[in-house]
Design a protein around this nucleic acid. Structure first.
Lengths: 348, 348
DNA sequence: TCTGACTAAGACAACGTTGTCTTAATCCAT
DNA sequence: ATGGATTAAGACAACGTTGTCTTAGTCAGA
C-alpha cells in the first residue's frame, strides 16, 4: 500500500480505486447520504479511516456551493474579552459539525472603510452563515449588509428587533435579581446599584432585576442608591465615593459590570474600608478582571462561550431550511452565580 | 447591463465576455500577472470594478493549491487577552494581502483530543501557513505537527529554539530596563521587583532588565527587593505585603505583569497607602486590567497586534520561497511606555 | 412470468478558477 | 527581406468534489 503517502494527499479517487467502487459512492459514504449498501459502506469507511482521507474543502465547496465556514462577526476584535469566549464556543460547535470558523471584523465607526469594507469581506469570505455579536447584532447597517449578502445569521444577545432573526440570550434581569437577593440573604438591606450607560440594553435589564428583587422584599430603593455609571472602572470609583458619603451608607454595592466593581473596590480601599468586612461589592459578567481583582470579585458568570456555541448550532441546524429567517427562534441560556471573596454578611 | 445581477454572482466569464477577452486574460489582470497590454488591462480592471467582481476563493484555491487562508494557532482561545489582539493584527495583514484569517485551537493539555485533534484540524483547514502564539510556539508536539503538515510558520515571541523558524519578538529586557529607569528618574531609589514564574521566558528577561537598570545606576538590588510572583494578582498582593513589611520599605514596585500590579494596588490600599502618593506601582503588558485598575496602571505596552501583523507579513512574503524555513529571520518590534496614574515621584 | 416499484451504484457534466502550452503579431538586428 | 526574440493573448486541460441522470439488479404482487 504505498499510495497511502503519495505526496501526503489522499483523494477520493484513491479511496474509490482501492475499494473498487466509483468516486460517487465514496462521496455518498462521506456525506452520509443514502443509496449505499451496508457492506459497501463499511468497506469504504474503513478505507477512509485507514488512509486518513479528508475531503478537500475547496473542491467540495466549489461543487456544492457551501463553504463549510461559519463567520463570527465582531465590532472590535481586540477590545472586549468576550471575543475570545465567543470563539471558543463557536469553534466547539463548528468542529462537531465539520465546519470551520472564520473571523470578520466590522471596523468600528471611527475607522475608515467602515461597513463598506465589511460587506466586501463578507462577500469573498463566502461564509455559509454568520453569528453576530453585540454590538454588531443591533447595527442596522451590518444587518442590512448581511441580509443583502443573503446569509443566514443568528444574533447573540441582541437588544432590539427580536423578531428579525433567530438569536440566543441570557436572562440578565433574572440574574441581576438573584445577585441582589444573594446580598439580601446575607443580611444586607441597604444595597446600592451602580448603573451602566443609559442606552445599553443589558445595563437596563440588570437594573430592572435589581429593582425587582428589592421590591419583592418590600423595599423601594431610594433614588440615591442608584448611581450612574459608564461601565468603566473610574465611573465605578466615583459612584462608590458618592455612595459612601451618604449618611446612611449602603452595606453592599452591586455594580452592573465587573469593571465598575473593580473601581468600587478601589474606592472602598481609599476610604479605609476593608472588603468584604466593611463593605460588600459584587459585579456582573465574570470577566478576567473579576479574577484578577483583589479581593476576587463575587459576580455572575455570563455563559458567553455557550451562547456562541448555541448560536452556531442553531445556524447549522437551520441550513437547508428555506424559511430559516422566517422561522425565528430563540434560545435562552443559564447564568451562574460565582461566589468569590468580595461579598459577606454585613459586620454591623 | 442586466447581467450585473445575475443571481448576485459575477464570474470571471462574465467579465471576459463583456470585455471581449479570454478568461485567462481576466485572470492575469486580477492576479497582477504580466503579459497583458496596458489598454486591455485598464479596460478589464474597469469592468471588474464596475461589476464588483470578486474571485471565488474555492475555485481559486482548488486550481492554484493555495487556500488564501492564514491560520492563527492558540492554546486557549478564551483565556488570554492577547488572543484578540493577535487577531486584530493578523487580520490587518491578511486583508492587505487578500488573505483571510482562520482560528485553530490546540486544546490545552488537560483536554481530550489534545494535539491529535489539532493535527486533524490543521489538515483539513488547508491553511497556506500558520502563526504560532505562545505557548504553542514552544510546544514540541505542536511544532512537530505543523512541520509534518508541511506548513510554513512564523512564531510570535518564542522562548526557545530561535533557529527553528522565523519569528517576531519584542525586547522585554530593554523595556523592563526603561520601565525601571523611569521610576529611577522620578527619584525612586528603593525599587522592588515582583518576579514571574521561574520557567517563563519573558519574566526572566524582564527581571534581567530590572537588574541591569539598577546596576547601571550603581545599585545592587538587595535580594529581598526581588519578590517571587506567579503572574496572578494574589501573588502580587502577597509579594507586596511582604515588601511593605521591610524596615526600609521600597518607594516603588515594578511588577512583571499587570495582573500582579493590580494585586499590589490592593495590598497598598489595605495597608493604608495611597497610590501613587505613598507608593508607586508599575506593571507590564498593558492589558485591559491596567486600564480597569484604579488608579490606572502605568505600564509598558506590548505591541501584540503589531507582532501578529508582522508575523503574517513575514509568512505571506515568504510564500513561494522554497527555502522559507531555512532562511530564518526575525523581526523585533518596539514597545511603548504607557504613562498613567499609578507612578509619581516619591513624596518623602 | 411479467410488470412496476424500489435500491445500489455508476457515468458524466458541472463548479470557477489557474497552469501550461501554443499561437499570432510585432520588433529589432542582420 | 529574413530570422530570432519578445510580447500579448488564447486554447485547453487540470483541480477534487458534488448534482443529476441513467442503469442494472432485485423483489413483491398479479
Amino acid at each position: 500500500m504505498q499510495q497511502d503517502e503519495r505526496g501526503g494527499k489522499v483523494t477520493i479517487v484513491d479511496i474509490a480505486r482501492e475499494a473498487g467502487v466509483s468516486i460517487k459512492t465514496v462521496s455518498r459514504v462521506i456525506n452520509r447520504e443514502e443509496g449505499v449498501g451496508e457492506e459497501t459502506r463499511a468497506r469504504v469507511q474503513a478505507l477512509v479511516d485507514r488512509l486518513c482521507y479528508r475531503p478537500n474543502v475547496s473542491a467540495r465547496s466549489l461543487s456544492s456551493r457551501r463553504s463549510y465556514l461559519i463567520g463570527a462577526i465582531f465590532m472590535r476584535v481586540g477590545a472586549y474579552h468576550y471575543v475570545g469566549e465567543v470563539q471558543v464556543g463557536a469553534m466547539r460547535a463548528c468542529r462537531r459539525a465539520g465546519y470551520h470558523l472564520g473571523v470578520e471584523q466590522v471596523r468600528p465607526p471611527e475607522a475608515v472603510g467602515g461597513v463598506q469594507g465589511f460587506a466586501e469581506g463578507l462577500r469573498d469570505a463566502r461564509f455559509d452563515g454568520v453569528v453576530l455579536t453585540p454590538p454588531t447584532c443591533d447595527d442596522p447597517e451590518v444587518l442590512a449588509a448581511v441580509e443583502a449578502a443573503g446569509l443566514p445569521y443568528v444574533r447573540i444577545a441582541p437588544h432590539r428587533e427580536f423578531e428579525r432573526s433567530p438569536y440566543v440570550f441570557m436572562d440578565d434581569r433574572r440574574a441581576a435579581r438573584e445577585q441582589t437577593l444573594r446580598l439580601w440573604n446575607m443580611g444586607h438591606r441597604r444595597i446600592a446599584f451602580i448603573d451602566g450607560p443609559a442606552d445599553h440594553g443589558s445595563a437596563e435589564r440588570r437594573r430592572q432585576g435589581y429593582l425587582e428583587a428589592m421590591r419583592d422584599r418590600g423595599v423601594e430603593p431610594r433614588p440615591e442608591w442608584i448611581a450612574k455609571g459608564e461601565f468603566l472602572s473610574l465611573s465605578g470609583f466615583n459612584a462608590t465615593e458618592a455612595l459612601l458619603r451618604l449618611k446612611e451608607r449602603p452595606t453592599a454595592i452591586f455594580a452592573a459590570n465587573d469593571e465598575m466593581a473593580v473601581g468600587a473596590l478601589a474606592a472602598a480601599a481609599k476610604n479605609g474600608l476593608s472588603v468584604p468586612r466593611d463593605l460588600s461589592v459584587v459585579g456582573f459578567d465574570d470577566t478576567p478582571a473579576a479574577e484578577a481583582a483583589w479581593p476576587r470579585l463575587t459576580t455572575v458568570h455570563q455563559p458567553t462561550a455557550e451562547m456562541a456555541e448555541a448560536a452556531v448550532e442553531m445556524l447549522i441546524d437551520g441550513f437547508g431550511d428555506e424559511r430559516f429567517r422566517a422561522r425565528v427562534t430563540a434560545r435562552k441560556l443559564g447564568y451562574r452565580l460565582v461566589q468569590r471573596d468580595s461579598a459577606a454578611p454585613p459586620s454591623a
